[in-house]
């Protein structure tokens, strides 16, 4: 039973790390779907808007997490290499 629980937890954890972040992505997908189906006419701006929204959600989420880490005092010193 414990093994099944762990597997289910791990599988859920594959796609959901931060519930608020995952929820924002899902809501954005639903919103663009509704807008593109009922309100907006097909144009290259709709997919662009879809991407920009996702990028904004990522930015907001990492900034929020950074602020929270700093407020909790657990931010570690920045690393010298840009991606490491």
């Amino acid at each position: 039973m414990n093994a099944i629980k762990t597997i289910v937890h791990e599988l859920g954890g594959l796609v959901v790390d931060d519930v608020g972040f995952a929820l924002a992505v899902v809501v954005w997908i639903a919103l663009v779907w509704l807008l593109s189906d009922f309100i907006l006419s097909p144009s290259p701006w709709v997919p662009t808007m879809f991407f920009v929204g996702l990028g904004t959600i990522v930015l907001e989420s990492v900034m929020r997490r950074s602020r929270a880490a700093a407020n909790a005092g657990d931010a570690i010193p920045p690393l010298p290499a840009p991606l490491q």
């Binding site: 594959l14 796609v15 959901v16 790390d17 931060d18 972040f21 995952a22 992505v25 996702l54 959600i57 990522v58 989420s61 990492v62 997490r65 950074s66 880490a69 931010a75 570690i76 010193p77 920045p78 690393l79 840009p82 991606l83 490491q84």
Partner: peptide, 15 residues
């Protein structure tokens, strides 16, 4: 996006 978010936070030294 979850991987990208985590990689950004690690690269920034937050986690």
């Amino acid at each position: 996006l979850r991987w990208l978010r985590k990689a950004i936070l690690r690269a920034a030294g937050v986690i």
